[in-house]
Design a protein around this nucleic acid. Structure first.
Lengths: 342, 342
DNA sequence: ATGAAAGCGCTAACAA
DNA sequence: TTGTTAGCGCTTTCAT
């Protein structure tokens, strides 16, 4: 037998199609008693609404707005590119994607942009959050206006966002330590840490996780205080070059932010032998080449495509008030070595 | 403006709906000239068929049959469980999944089962292949009967299968070597290899990749000949215990097949200190616990869920003669440490 | 508060 | 070879 339809439900409940529809979509104008009958019929038949037919009928088009930082690093540029690709594909699912770029690490700008999206009649907003009161406020307003909000990559604490899609950055840091610690085991020495900025939440979390594991499991490795590069390659190069000169016993480097190009340059310049073991974040053209060269040992990554598609699934479910599979938003930290590059 | 529909195309091309439909679906009975007009209209309008509406209309239900080995290891049991889950979900996409189990490593049995599926009026078959002439033959027959075939996890060389979904096992072996080699660097010693059977193709490929990298990049580590366990925990335990006793200088172990429970038992019994570094395949309850205990260092994995959903997407595209994104079938080898467990 | 009927974009008989 | 028409399962006016 094929799946039961609204017709079946209507027949069993002894009501018309419209009434079934009203119950189905939680519209009012149905007596409680009737509602019960309809619901009973649905349960009895195991009715499950056909979303495709529903969307076909109502000509529903989900309008989703992505608000992402206009960062200097190739990671964010990859995100933008991925969004362009997904925009094409999403059309088949009746989803219209628009993108707006905002200055990075700027809560005020992000908040303002979020307010502006209310005029675009979007059904939902997906954003890479920056921690800030303005942003939290703007999110509340969106929610109040019936616009769903999903945070991507970087979450917004204590906010009204409906869901977060991204990796667990503390565990990413721990993972980096697990790798680097094992890579360096047996050879006492120092570990350098290169971060973008300690004002950014994911970087803080990665550092936290990294230090947790380093201290508890590889106490013979001494951690240097993190270099803050603002994710700019040139600064990474300069600061790290200095540090390598000052500490010839650096045997491992963890770069938890952007600017990996500068990392390569610094290592090239230093030309140590054996070179330090290196673990970095985000698979970009730069880090891929460095992995193949043997200059980097491991790259931690979050699958941007998966993040985008998960965010779309989740925000559509949010919009439709459908249950959300917790698994969907949980992106795990992937590890790439030279030989399992995708 | 909203997307153009068949009506628009019909109007512009000055034909009826049916004619547009015929062209759209490559049915014959349309003059070449008319076809051209219709195609021109489609191009002009940028028409793209609405698959949901199409499926709604034709009440199309994709019947997909999965043929998988009834193996003794938890990996295959996980596969079966995942299929059960996906069966439920796939219904929403008008896809009906059925599963049939066959004896593992038995080409004859698999071939026979494939022949039998022709009677189930399936639209497509997804199978974990075993290399064998019977199987290749059966695949050809299915294709001839218009039934699409996709191989999953283990490919079938020189066959008519429409697509393969799974990881690159040579590169998985190389990846294992990259990890284990770095983990053991600096401490000369021996590496033990535990395999299921050298008659199985993915195991052979993993071993190949592993030895490639070990020889070229970590020549100071000596490889022992592989233990063949038939993926049975008890045999892994016994054989490995012997080997550990015979070679007290084993500092690393690569297990490329099943039976990881036996591996744990053997290590427990040996109780070496420091214990050898261990890299295994497939995230199961066993290997997960061992990772958390700190008994295993890394687990290589193929995402079964992703493999199943990719296989579904691909076989549906095959059935609909739609273009296939090469990326979809390429599953990459994931690496798990204790801290990035999903 | 409930129902009848007309679509949504596409397909599939059946006619012409 | 081409066209007409009646659905697919659901939503949405507009009546009642």
């Amino acid at each position: 037998m094929s799946r039961p339809t609204v017709h079946d439900v209507a027949r069993v409940a002894n009501v018309s199609l419209s009434t079934v529809d009203r119950v189905l979509n939680g519209r009012d104008g149905v007596r409680a008693a009737t509602q019960e009958r309809v619901r009973a019929a649905m349960k009895q038949l195991g009715y499950e609404r056909d979303l495709m037919a529903a969307n076909l009928s109502r000509k529903r088009i989900y309008k989703i707005r992505f608000v992402i930082p206009d960062g200097p690093n190739s990671f964010m540029r990859n995100l933008a590119a991925e969004l362009e690709t997904q925009a094409r594909i999403a059309l088949r699912d009746r989803t219209e994607i628009s993108v707006s770029l905002v200055p990075p690490f700027d809560g005020r700008a992000l908040g303002a942009e979020l307010r502006r999206t209310r005029e675009t009649e979007a059904d939902g907003v997906v954003m890479v959050a920056t921690e800030s009161a303005e942003v939290r406020q703007a999110v509340s307003e969106l929610r109040a206006a019936g616009i769903q909000v999903v945070t991507l990559i970087s979450d917004l604490s204590a906010s009204a966002r409906g869901h977060f899609v991204g990796i667990d950055n503390v565990s990413a840091g721990r993972t980096a330590a697990g790798l680097l610690g094992r890579f360096c085991a047996g050879r006492p020495g120092r570990i350098a840490i290169v971060a973008g900025s300690m004002l950014v939440r994911d970087h803080v979390e990665r550092r936290l996780g990294f230090e947790q594991v380093m201290h508890s499991e590889f106490p013979e490795l001494k951690l240097l205080p993190p270099i803050e590069s603002g994710d700019e390659a040139a600064r990474v190069d300069r600061l790290l070059t200095d540090q390598l000169r000052e500490h010839p016993d650096i045997i491992g480097i963890y770069s938890l932010g952007g600017g990996n190009r500068g990392l390569r340059d610094a290592l090239d310049r230093a030309g140590a032998d054996p070179r330090p073991m290196v673990v970095v974040h985000e698979l970009t053209d730069q880090s891929r080449v460095a992995l193949q060269d043997g200059m980097f040992d491991a790259v931690l990554q979050q699958d941007i495509r998966k993040e985008v598609t998960s965010a779309l699934v989740i925000i559509r479910n949010l919009i439709e008030a459908m249950p959300i599979d917790a698994e969907t938003g949980r992106i795990h930290t992937e590890i790439f070595l030279r030989d399992n590059l995708p």
